[in-house]
């Protein structure tokens, strides 16, 4: 369906997701939370995963981490991390993989710390869990390592002995980042990790995450819905709608020439601090997630819907280098370029 791998400056892929499907079982049929998504994460890249609540972005991340619990289940797919198919791993293999290769900064990281344990102890747990008798650190080495991690994320030394309730939201968030980078993972998944913070604190946490990317070369998947923050932090953006990927593009394309009508709507809905504009209101009619309509997933809300959209599901195609869109509005020409049907007159047969 896509030929993503050979793109983006020839970097090597660290994570490839092929046709991942995650369904939730309900009495009246399966809810297709993630319905066949494909993407590649390259080394040293921050990939933003955006979409409205319920579009499946968090479920996709949980699927990659193998943290789906019933009634949810992974129906099909392939998740290749550094050459290993994560879905074929045993429980023990998964345990070894988590934190060491694939780390998570959870949604509301501030509430995911254990309130009864000091910060130092919680970071130590992560490291000890993955030690072998050969690599076992002694107490002093461990203390030095933890202090180094805290300093790295900009936390003072005294945090070592503190409990989570003694830290502010931004400090807890950074403690979680310290934990995530403790074992030098290849990929970090950050699920809405700055959305509950004030803008100033959010900026400090965002800076810390950018430092992780630049200095440690870690790849990240950042899930969120703040398009402003995405513009500041990420390299590529994946836009999801109702369990499907509708567009993947570099951050520049995404903000300068959004391709998919849904992406255009997302970008338009960001309130500006520079000028007062009339508010753009969009109604959120969506289909029943148990029973998606044939054709395009966005047809009920799309202002440009055509007959073809109701019959045939659009495939994702690269309309220009670095931008893939799943939309019938873009028609391939014999020379390999694409035209936007809205720019050609008399196309609305709907």
């Amino acid at each position: 369906m896509t030929n993503e791998t050979n793109k983006t400056n020839g970097q090597t892929p660290v994570l490839t997701v092929n046709d991942l499907r995650v369904y939730y079982e309900t009495p009246r049929g399966d809810v297709r939370a993630v319905d066949g998504i494909n993407f590649t994460l390259n080394e040293g890249v921050i990939l933003g995963l955006v979409g409205e609540s319920g579009c499946g972005k968090s479920t996709a991340a949980m699927g990659i981490l193998q943290l789906i619990t019933p009634p949810g289940r992974i129906v099909s797919g392939e998740i290749v991390l550094d050459g290993t198919d994560v879905l074929k791993l045993t429980t023990e293999g998964l345990r070894q993989l988590r934190w060491s290769k694939l780390a998570l900064i959870p949604q509301g990281a501030m509430n995911s710390l254990n309130p009864t344990m000091r910060i130092s102890r919680q970071i130590e747990d992560v490291v000890r869990e993955h030690e072998t008798p050969q690599t076992r650190m002694n107490k002093d080495a461990m203390r030095t390592r933890i202090l180094e991690l805290l300093q790295w994320v900009g936390l003072p030394e005294r945090v070592y002995n503190m409990f989570p309730h003694e830290l502010s939201g931004g400090m807890k968030q950074r403690a979680c980042i310290a934990m995530a980078i403790a074992l030098n993972p290849s990929v970090i998944i950050a699920d809405e990790s700055t959305s509950a913070l004030d803008v100033v604190v959010q900026r400090v946490v965002a800076q810390t995450m950018l430092k992780v990317k630049q200095q440690l070369g870690v790849s990240m998947i950042m899930i969120g819905h703040d398009m402003g923050l995405m513009a500041q932090m990420v390299d590529r953006i994946v836009v999801m709608y109702a369990g499907n990927i509708v567009e993947i593009a570099t951050v520049n394309h995404m903000f300068k020439n959004p391709g998919h009508p849904y992406t255009q709507l997302l970008i338009d809905s960001v309130p500006s601090l520079k000028e007062r504009k009339p508010l753009k209101i969009t109604e959120g009619i969506t289909h029943d997630p148990r029973n998606p309509p044939p054709g395009c997933i966005f047809q009920l809300r799309c202002p440009f819907v055509m007959d073809r959209c109701r019959a045939e599901k659009p495939l994702r195609q690269a309309i220009r280098p670095g931008q893939e869109v799943a939309c019938h509005l873009y028609e391939a020409q014999p020379d390999g370029s694409y035209i936007d049907l809205r720019e050609v007159s008399d196309v609305h047969d709907a």
Binding site: V199, V200, V204, L229, Q232, V251, L273
Partner: peptide, 20 residues
């Protein structure tokens, strides 16, 4: 505060780093 609001434009990046 006003400077920290992320701008939805990849060409306008935050100026400088801040420390709390």
């Amino acid at each position: 505060l006003v400077n920290s609001v992320p701008v939805p434009d990849p060409d306008i990046q935050w100026e400088g780093t801040i420390e709390l």
